[in-house]
């Protein structure tokens, strides 16, 4: 087998593992986004208690290593109480990445909401909208365009951060790469693997550029 054929022969296994990487990222960022919207609204709410709680959440998840959060959820929780056992490695990773990305996304969303001119909220209130309606109809839709680039960035970060799941023996692209590497002792396996990561990043960048254009029509 020449070099090229060798790399091609690894492809099916690598692509299967890529499925894990992509689905973990997509599920985590989606769940993280939903949770982060509530965290962001909590962080700017009038209630000091809600503000503090959301602040503490964000502080915790941004202030401790992601790998430690992952270990804590997968290894430590079952030992604290058996009801907290998460038997699926994928689910454990999904929870850890969702909770973690929610903290980062919450700060992104809060900043975007607060960057909207306060005259927009005043005009909404003067037109009879409640705070909730003003947020839903006026403020949040306007912040979406400003959110797209940093959310795209977060996606790319998470794609690469998912490589940490190899440490709980979940077979993602990274894990599969190192498995092949150790069984074949061939340094070449890193090349197709990197190409896959780069392809995913390129596609994501393209999608988010398109989204940004689509949401910029009114400017």
């Amino acid at each position: 087998m020449n070099m090229f054929e060798k790399m091609l022969s690894w492809m099916p296994a690598l692509l299967r593992a890529t499925g894990v990487t992509i689905s973990l990222t997509a599920l985590s960022v989606s769940c993280g986004l939903i949770l982060s919207l509530f965290l962001a609204l909590g962080k700017i709410s009038k209630s000091k208690v809600v503000q503090k709680l959301c602040g503490a959440y964000i502080y915790f998840f941004r202030g401790t290593p992601l790998l430690m959060q992952l270990f804590f959820i997968y290894y430590a929780l079952p030992q604290l109480h058996s009801a907290l056992t998460i038997s699926s490695r994928f689910t454990a990773a999904w929870i850890a990445y969702s909770l973690n990305s929610a903290a980062y996304l919450a700060e992104i969303i809060r900043a975007a909401i607060q960057s909207i001119d306060k005259g927009q909220l005043e005009a909404s209130r003067a037109l009879g909208m409640s705070y909730g309606k003003a947020m839903r109809l006026v403020i949040i839709p306007q912040s979406i365009r400003r959110l797209i680039p940093p959310i795209g960035n977060e996606f790319i970060m998470i794609i690469k951060d998912t490589s940490l799941v190899s440490s709980i023996a979940l077979v993602d692209l990274m894990k599969k790469t190192s498995q092949i590497q150790s069984s074949t002792a061939s340094p070449l396996v890193y090349l197709p693997s990197m190409a896959i990561y780069l392809t995913i990043t390129a596609v994501l960048t393209w999608v988010f550029n398109c989204l940004e254009k689509k949401f910029s029509i009114y400017e």
Binding site: A126, L127, G128, K133, L137, Q142
Partner: peptide, 30 residues
């Protein structure tokens, strides 16, 4: 407050809505 309408120095139109949508938003949703 529905009895009063307000016009601001800096317009404060909703930039993500067309003229028609700006005008219909509150009648529909409020």
């Amino acid at each position: 407050l529905l009895k009063t309408g307000m016009v601001f120095q800096r317009f404060n139109l909703f930039p993500h809505k067309t003229v028609l949508e700006n005008v219909t938003l509150s009648p529909i949703h409020v």
